[in-house]
Design a protein around this nucleic acid. Structure first.
Ligand SMILES: [Mn+2]
Ligand SMILES: [Mn+2]
Ligand SMILES: [Zn+2]
Ligand SMILES: [Zn+2]
Lengths: 162, 162
DNA sequence: TCCTACTTGCGTATGATACGCAACAAGGAA
DNA sequence: TTCCTTGTTGCGTATCATACGCAAGTAGGA
């Protein structure tokens, strides 16, 4: 995350919050900054633990409420690659995801070719199109080393990999 | 779901189960059939209620255990479009998803152009690639009628729409 | 038909997320 | 800067999806 990018997103937060009559509290700033600065697409619990270091009094509940508020404001998106925790993304630029089915690692990747993909007619008849992106699933290199041989999908659990 | 397609998938289930030393119980057959026959990508609870009509003694727990077993066998895939319930898909052919951010409706769509998309170099350096598909998000036509004006993402809750 | 490993149903546990309420603070007005 | 109003927070607790242990049950090969 480059400095100008961070600044741009923080400014977008400020603008959007003001327009919506939403107050910019210390905890909200820190929670948003945490998502922006992380490439991990963290879940609520992970964000909570990180923010807690700088704001020792935050509650997990505030993290949840803030995340869904940011989501409602269109400032973060969610992704649910597998069971349990929902994970959040503050990268609003067009991009795509690589997801490890073993450990839950999520990484952005860019591709102008993929950004411009043409969707078939049938799709627009289902409803409006707000966003389209590619989701790639596989075993991340770290997980390949850890578990050389194994059945297809067994023992999948998500976890944030810092 | 066409008859030959159903047959093909049931046969795949039989073969795979035998190979894995997994027993083909009545409840497993019905649970699998339910996912295959539905276009809704149902969640565990929805599958449970449907199967219960034919097998009144099934337990919700058996549905959960069966779903993850089918998943481990590679017979169904999961998708988590938003908060709460994980949803299951028995369509193993290459295809893509349209997801309504309002009601959670999920619909398959096909596109040979999208099936063959080329991923950038960077992706293969993250790990192996098991699957790649396009995920489109928007407001389904039914939800557009229901809620003419509203803030971007407010009030999102998933639900199976039969 | 018999055996036995794999399954099931049930009761209960776990873990993520949500809600009600009173204390609190952001930020516009004066 | 001080004062108000209104949106926010932290906490305790509620909910709800999903998982687990165990004893009874059954698929399916011998
Ligand atoms: Mn992302
Ligand atoms: Mn599908
Ligand atoms: Zn991994
Ligand atoms: Zn909808």
């Amino acid at each position: 995350m480059s400095q100008p990018n961070l600044d741009r997103r923080l400014e977008h937060l400020t603008t959007t919050a003001k327009e919506a009559g939403v107050k910019l509290t210390h905890q909200r700033l820190e929670i948003f900054r945490e998502i922006v600065l992380s490439a991990e697409h963290p879940d609520a619990e992970t964000i909570f633990r990180a923010v807690q270091k700088r704001v020792p009094t935050v509650s997990l509940d505030t993290v949840y409420r803030t995340l869904w508020k940011l989501h409602d404001l269109g400032l973060v998106t969610t992704l649910g690659p597998q069971r349990d925790r929902v994970r959040f993304d503050a990268n609003l630029d067009p991009h795509h995801h690589y997801i490890c089915v073993q450990c839950g690692l999520v990484r952005d990747f860019e591709s102008s070719e993929l950004d411009g993909l043409r969707l078939p007619e049938a799709v627009s008849q289902l409803g409006t199109i707000m966003n389209a992106h590619v989701e790639v699933r596989g075993l991340c290199s770290r997980c390949q080393q850890r578990l050389p041989t194994q059945t297809p999908n067994s023992n999948q659990q998500s976890q944030s990999v810092p």
